[in-house]
Structures are given as C-alpha cells and as structure tokens.
Design a protein around this nucleic acid. Structure first.
Lengths: 250, 250
DNA sequence: GTCGCGTGGATGGTATACCATTTCCGCCGG
DNA sequence: CCGGCGGAAATGGTATACCATCCACGCGAC
C-alpha cells in the first residue's frame, strides 16, 4: 500500500472527519463523542434526537447506532431510546480479557514477520520516547505513546480481521484508560516489559513475543482493573473530572 | 410459545422463520444460506434482489447485509452488488488465528470457574460420545459433537463479549470445517487433546487449560489448513456438494 | 386508596420515495 | 478501427412516510 503507514489507527477520530458517507460520519461522530466523554455514560437519546443532533435523517443514524451497539458502546432499548453504556468493573474485566487475548496473538504474529528497518526503528523509537516521558513524569504523553506502540505492533501483524476485532475493542478499553489516566503511577513496569516485547519482536521470536506480551498484559490489566476499582467504586462522593487533556465543554 | 397469536396479518413470512423482526430474520436467513452453501461463494446479488428473495423491503435487508459484511461473510461493493465472500487459504488462516486466540482465552476462563455437576457431566459425556464416534468412524457425527464441545466450553466462560466475538468468527470457521469434512482422517489426536482440556477444566486449572487448548488449537489449525490447501488448490474443484449453481444472467 | 383496564401518544421498525453517483453503452471523431 | 465522450439507466445512499406496538397515564370500579 502507501509507503507511509496508515498512521496510528487509534485516536478517537479527529473531529474534521470528512469525505465519508453519512453513516460513517454518524458512526465516527458518535463514537468520538462517547469516547471523549462528550456524551456521558447514561445519556439517553432517541433516534430522532440523534438525527437532529447530527443534522441527518434517521436512516444513517440508525445504521451507525446499530454498529455502536454491536461494539458495546451503546445500548438500544426499543421505545426507551439509545443509552450510552455505563461500564462497570466487570465490563472492563471482560473487555480487557478479549482485548488482551487478541493483542497477544497479534504481537506474536508480528514477531513472526519480517519487518523493514523503518518499522523496527519506529518501534524502538517509540519505546525510547515512552521511557523519556516516564522520566519526565508526563503520564498523559506516555499513555499516548503507549497507544501508538501497541497500535503499531497490532498494525504490523498482517491479519486484517484480527486488526478489525482489536479495533472494535480498542474503543471500550480506551474509555477505561481514560478514566484512570489521572491516577496512574509511573509506568516503570510497562517500560520494562515493553523492552522485552520489543526484543522478542525484533528477534523474530513469536514464542518469546507471545510470552512477553502475555506477561505484560496480565500485569497491566491487573493494575488497570485495580485502579478502575478505585475510580469506579465510590458511589460518587468525588465527581470524576471529565476533563483531562481534552478540550473542555460538553 | 409463539403459536398462532402473532399471525394477525397475512404476511409472506419465510417458512419456519420464528417471530423475530425483519432485520434479524434477514440476517439469520442469509447467514444460514451462506453457511450451508445454498448461497455459493461468488454469488452476487443486488439489495433489491435480496429484498425480493426474502420478501422484505430494502431497509431491513440492508441492515442485515451490513452486519454480514462486518462479519466477513459478504462483501459490499457499491453499485456492484453484494457478493458472498470466497475465502482463500490465507483468509482461513487469518480466521483461525483470531478464532483460536479467542477460544483459548475462553477455555482458560471456563477452567477458572466453578462448574455445576451437570455441566461437568455434560462435558465429560461429550468427550466420551466423540470417542465413540471416532471408534465407529462416524466423522460427521464426531464433527457435530466437537462443535458442541467447543461451544459448551465457550458458553461457560462467563464473558458475554468474548462469546459474541467468538460467535462472529464461528460462522467463517464453520465454512472451512464444512469444506474439509469429507477429507478428515480419524480425529484421534483431537480426542486425546480433548481429554487433556477436559481434565484441566474439571481440575479448575486455568494455566493448564490454556496450555492444553493452545496445543490443541495449534495442531488442529495446522491440520485443518493443510487439508484446506488440498481442497482449495485444485483449479477445478471437486463436487464437494450437490449444490446447484445460481442461474447466471444473460 | 388501590388496582386494573382502556385509550392516546410516542417510538421505532419497515416500506417507499427521492436523488446523487457511477457504470455501461453507443456514437462520434480521430 | 480505436478511443474518448456523453447520456441514459441502474444502483445504492439518504430522506421521509406509514403503521404496528408498547408505554404512560388517567379514569373508573372495587
């Protein structure tokens, strides 16, 4: 394909998304609003309301909403409206289980492939930049780079279906990451594990990559869930700030 | 349960189709036709034609087709119609990669759960019946039981999202199984591996279950792909089924 | 006061109408 | 004879209309 990579696929989706049909625009727009918290969990809207909100008719909105529902971001209750799903700790556990299983496989596949020098460099550079971010205590920056690193590992696996499924869960997992971002400790363990993953991938050793990524995800998921529990459990004594590094205003 | 109460209006409802909404009926119907080969790979239909075929309007058909496309069973090419995807060996490899990764995780989760006596019995019985089928050389029956066994392991994992994703890939994997069914050797290896999986699950040992299922899937996938290669490579495919060709347009 | 039933309205599921885009095909010019 | 161009028809994407269904609410009966 194009020499330049498809660019880090994550990112909730830039606001200026254009050149698509109405269905995809509606999907991208709604997904973006949900992932960035502009559409808060629990928000309930009618098909008509969403259509009006986006300036479209019900048909494309409906198709987009069905897709979001299949992805687990919203729930459709006939005659009750479309509700932004409020994820519980158990939900996050389930999501991470699936997401990790897929990602581990993807990394193993990537390790089994021949990478170009540019790709190898890019991976190595990302880990270095993450370590620098850690050293500087810039967790938000680290988190973005971590997204890029994982996305790149997945993007190189060569299995389009696998990538698609991972992308499907990425959004849900992202919501959890976003919630705990302000509470994250320094990701020294992740940095260390990333080194091991990188080494295995550059070595072209799928077995080692599988093991390394499995270990990484097991620990990272455990930590993330522990943090999520802390964030989610309070009945709401402390309003969780919806602002992080995003522009404000809902 | 549904009985006659629903039939308030004379609707040209497809025969046997239970009382779902039109979208789900269209989805189930099309999926069934594709998986059973009634809609042969390569078949191309227009939205209008499918709608006429199912006796529905385009709207629900469209929604169903979008879902099938996301699932990878059909391909939508605007202004060219909806084509039943003809899976290549590479496709099957990709599909099995994802499917196995998910199923392995599911089995590990199941092993981590407390099962009821009935569930344990059911699993044990299934393996026994499979072994009997093997002894009798009834591969078709064995294959069905194998489906049941795997489905039950997955069904017990307690992660609804994981189950959903597995279900999404099950259909595609099923097409491959169906293709090689007549060429399968006696599944002695599978039976042996199933014993190991069963033991680990009944032991409540997720680690062991993970390892056992990983080994099982790795070997089974390898064998299946080898068979698929044999089935798929000949330019002039053997009469795999009695399925008739679609009438071609003049 | 509470429970049950009926009715009206809201809602979403489905059908249909409309329109922009693309493709196919024939015609004209080179 | 070939290739580009134009237009008509087909097609899918979108908008809208329609209608069965379900829910809420109120009224009446117990």
């Amino acid at each position: 394909m194009t020499g330049i990579s498809r660019a880090a696929r994550p990112r909730p989706v830039p606001p200026g998304s254009s050149g698509l049909n109405a269905r995809d625009r509606a999907y991208a727009d709604l997904r973006y609003r949900i992932l960035t918290g502009r559409l808060a969990p629990g928000t309930t809207l009618l098909e008509t309301e969403i259509a009006a909100l986006l300036g479209l008719s019900r048909t494309p909105v409906r198709e987009a909403v069905i897709r979001l529902a299949e992805e687990g971001l919203v729930r459709i209750r006939p005659r009750h409206g479309i509700t932004v799903v409020d994820l519980t700790l158990a939900d996050f556990r389930d999501i991470l289980d699936v997401f990790s299983a897929l990602e581990i496989r993807a990394v193993a596949l990537t390790a089994a492939r021949r990478l170009t020098a540019a790709q190898r460099d890019a991976l190595a550079t990302l880990t270095q930049r993450m370590e620098r971010a850690t050293a500087e205590g810039d967790i938000a920056r680290w988190s973005d780079l971590d997204d890029d690193f994982h996305a790149m590992l997945v993007g190189l696996c060569g299995n389009a279906r696998l990538q698609r499924s991972i992308g499907e869960y990425w959004g849900q997992q992202y919501r959890g990451r976003r919630l705990i971002l302000p509470h994250r400790p320094l990701p020294s363990a992740s940095d260390r594990e990333h080194r091991a993953i990188l080494a295995a991938v550059l070595d072209g050793d799928p077995q080692a990559a599988h093991a390394a990524h499995l270990a990484h995800r097991a620990r990272a998921d455990r930590d993330q869930l522990a943090l999520l529990q802390r964030v989610l459990t309070p009945a709401t004594p402390e309003p969780i700030e919806e602002n992080s590094h995003e522009p404000h205003r809902p």
